[in-house]
């Protein structure tokens, strides 16, 4: 029987496929429903935060920064509470990273301010002597892509039932509703309103002027995103 299989390329391929697919079927499928339930207090990303997340991905920040706090004392001391599966329920894709050339950013919103990020992204070494992180000056002039963030919001709402415009339970018993525009103009206006709040805490006059004119530079979006990481 074995010998016959080895001489029959088609059946051989089917055999190989079954053998390699087996592990995937057993390990991937059963955990799917379990892991994707959000924990209390986890909200979907606002339009501006999502645009900032795209800036984060575009520049492969995840190549050097993880977003996963492991359950060790040294990690919780350094970065805050260890990660829970449900905290990632709205992360598409996940951004755990695999290498900490720089520190973890899972809860960076708890201990860094808008102003800190602003200075740091312009020139990391000036703020953190000895840092090997390069500056990201182009983020101060490139415009964030709000339309794409809006398109993603529509997509995840339609396909995965992400609860935009619905009350989401928070830890203190209250609820919070994350707004998603019903038209692209509404989404842009919403993002701009949030951008103005971020820009108010910033020092860079060019950025402030741009936001005043209704433009949202990438730096504003990515700071909004990093402030949301808690």
């Amino acid at each position: 029987m074995f010998h016959w299989l080895e001489k029959n390329p088609f059946l051989f391929s089917v055999g190989v496929f079954l053998v390699i697919a087996f592990a995937g079927v057993v390990t991937l499928i059963p955990s799917f429903a379990e892991a994707s339930r959000p924990v209390i207090g986890t909200t979907p990303y606002s339009t501006l935060e999502l645009a900032g997340r795209h800036v984060y991905i575009k520049n492969s920040c995840n190549a050097c920064h993880s977003q996963l706090v492991r359950p060790f004392k040294s990690e919780t001391d350094r970065y805050g509470d260890y990660s829970l599966s449900g905290e990632y329920a709205y992360d598409r894709p996940f951004l755990w990273g695999s290498k900490r050339t720089g520190p973890d950013l899972m809860r960076v919103g708890n201990y860094r301010t808008t102003e800190w990020h602003e200075n740091h992204m312009m020139d990391p070494e000036a703020l953190v002597p000895g840092s090997i992180m390069p500056g990201y000056k182009w983020m101060f002039t490139n415009l964030a892509d709000i339309d794409t963030a809006y398109a993603e919001q529509i997509t995840v709402t339609d396909f995965f039932g992400v609860p935009y415009n619905k009350p989401v339970p928070m830890k203190d018993g209250s609820t919070k509703t994350i707004f998603m525009g019903s038209t692209v103009d509404e989404a842009r206006a919403d993002a701009l309103a949030e951008a103005k709040l971020v820009a108010a805490d910033m020092k860079n006059q060019d950025v402030k002027d741009m936001v005043e004119k209704g433009q949202i530079p990438e730096i504003v979006a990515i700071i909004a995103y990093m402030n949301s990481l808690k």
């Binding site: 955990s31 994707s36 990632y88 992360d91 794409t148 398109a151 529509i154």
Partner: peptide, 22 residues
């Protein structure tokens, strides 16, 4: 999926969070 908004190149993963990692 959104009826023509944003960047044509952009896509969103079918899996979220821990599942995506898995």
């Amino acid at each position: 999926a959104s009826g023509g908004h944003g960047d044509i190149m952009h896509s969103v993963s079918a899996y979220a969070g821990s599942n995506d990692a898995l």
